[in-house]
Amino acid sequence: MLQAGPAKKVSIYVGEDHQYHGQSLYAAILDFLFYRGIAGVTVVRGIAGFGADHHLHTTRIERLTENLPVKIEFIESPEKTAEVLPKLHEMAGTGLIEVQDTLIVKPSEVSAKHAPQVSALPLKREGKAKLMRIFIGENDKWHDKPLYKALVEALRANDLAGATVYQGILGYGANRRIHREGALHLSHDRPVMLSVVESEEKLRAFFPVLDQMVQQGLVVLSDVDVIKYTHDSREGERRKEARP
């Protein structure tokens, strides 16, 4: 929750067409800031501008309409700002990030209860860990997007080690209602399970977010031993090569 007093104002300038892991960059940054519990963010689309490459982007000439400038702006405490800046630096790519000192005269207020903030804890990825399973329905929504998708985004934004979504073919849960695939696989009300392996502290730190997002379903934890958790940075290239 923002307090009146000194704070930081961060502005990130990117192009509307810029991409980040297959989705639009400004949307990815917005999601990241949202799930990291930033107090508030505004995205503004410019009508004309140019950047480091000195290409003029404007709505006035039709063929130059693409890649209009987008400004993502938020105000946060210096600590919180410092916490998200490294990731923003990585995400912004060729864009520009500006931080200025500002003074909050009156913080904005929330009407309902707000999401508790989650602090990042160091990752521990070998040895004893916990496996969290979340059972929900494929149709469950969170802010108009599929809940399982929102959960994966939230987990990623909170730096959890990884998540996998499984689709069931039949099942029932707390509401006693049978979920199953319909004829010709046209029904989309199948059971869905997410599985996440992480240290117990990181999982518990995520519970407040989970609590707010999962309105119906089952969440369980069990003990696991992590045997291997590796990442091959060359994998992307190898996959490209394998393509015909």
């Binding site: 519970f207 309105q215 119906q216 379903g217 089952l218 969440v219 069990s222 003990d223």
Partner: peptide, 16 residues
């Protein structure tokens, strides 16, 4: 069979 700890088990009555 394995041990698990239940963190959350909820449903909304009549929501669906």
């Amino acid at each position: 069979i394995s041990d698990v700890e239940v963190i959350k088990y909820v449903h909304q009555d009549g929501a669906r």
